[in-house]
């Protein structure tokens, strides 16, 4: 196993940031922790990268214990924190050389690992890191996390606040790193990035809601799901909530996603109800769930468990 966590927990004051998490990640996997801000993703990463100590439970990374073997482990991990953590007043080249030197290596020795990414920022290698655009900072940070040829790479929210084009490019880079045999663990609040991972853990309030391949997660969605639309979206949401068999009703871009409490529900019946409510232009079709539908269903069942 590349990573094994066993009942790993961490609290800060009264806040249980990570609640007894157990999971394993296989060598060569591109694994994603998917969840909103404040759900413990960063705390988990900081424990796995030996930067903070767990309160209880244990974890091993690359076969090394995160508490006992932290010195050995640090030489074999790459970590790109969520907040830009390079030296703002050193140049691009100086930052990279610094990180190579503290790991007893040189840029030249491992240049092949970073070449595809570094060539994109090389024209600016004399520029101070603090003067770079967001996209360039991100590429430099990735180069610095890779320059000591780690076996395993942790990336904490590398695409947060980054536009859709740069996000796409970043995932292309991860794919090519994975092809070179590096195990990659990434966290993200963007649910649509789940499909780019081999396996994902959906995480909420310090707990794993589900852990599986993206395909199996959406295949596990049980309720009949419909995409409904009308020119009067706001009123449509209210009308659907008033339908006696409504289970959940959420706006979803140009559609409203509606789940029915009955397995045998049909769109014709729904449309007849909506027409009677004055929505004569409404359309409804049965659809398959996506990862956000699944995440929301898991959140709801968790909440109803807590309340019962």
């Amino acid at each position: 196993m590349a990573i094994t966590a066993d009942n790993l927990s961490k609290h800060f004051g009264t806040v249980e940031a990570v609640k007894s998490l157990s999971f394993h990640i296989e060598p060569g996997e591109l694994f994603g922790f998917i969840g909103p801000d404040g759900t413990g993703k960063t705390t988990l990463f900081r424990m796995l990268t030996t930067l903070i100590l767990p309160d209880s439970g244990s974890a091993s990374v690359l076969g090394l214990d995160v508490v006992r073997d932290y010195k050995q482990l640090r030489n074999r991990l790459g970590y790109m924190p969520g907040r830009f953590s390079l030296y703002q007043d050193l140049s691009v080249e100086e930052n990279l050389r610094f990180f190579a030197t503290i790991f007893n290596t040189t840029i030249e020795e491992n240049y092949h690992l970073i070449r595809d990414i570094y060539v994109q920022i090389e024209p600016f290698k004399k520029r101070r890191a603090g003067q770079l655009s967001g996209g360039m900072k991100q590429k430099l940070a990735l180069c610095c996390a890779l320059i000591h040829k780690p076996d395993l790479l942790f990336l904490d929210e590398p695409t947060t606040g980054v536009d859709a084009v740069s996000r796409k490019e970043f995932w292309e880079m991860l794919k090519s790193l994975k092809a070179q045999g590096i195990t990659i663990v990434v966290s993200t609040p963007y649910m649509d990035e789940a499909s780019l991972c081999d396996r994902v853990a959906l995480i909420q309030k310090g707990e794993i809601l589900n852990i599986n391949t993206p395909g199996d997660i959406v295949a596990g969605y049980e309720k009949p799901l419909f995409a409904v639309k009308s020119s009067r979206m706001y009123e449509l949401i209210g009308a659907l909530r008033s339908f006696p068999f409504a289970q959940s009703v959420y706006p979803f871009g140009e559609f409203v996603h509606y789940t029915d409490s009955r397995q045998e529900a049909q769109s014709e019946e729904l449309l007849a109800y909506l027409a009677a409510q004055g929505f004569t232009d409404a359309e409804a079709k049965r659809i398959s769930a996506n990862i956000e539908d699944s995440f929301m269903a898991l959140m709801e069942s968790r909440t109803s468990q807590e309340n019962s």
Binding site: P36, G161, P189, Y234
Partner: peptide
């Protein structure tokens, strides 16, 4: 809506729809 869970994100968009209406 950066960084919030998907249910909260949708509640936020309902507020936007309401304002627009």
């Amino acid at each position: 809506t950066g960084g919030v869970d998907p249910i909260t994100r949708r509640q936020f968009w309902e507020l936007i729809y309401e304002a627009s209406a």
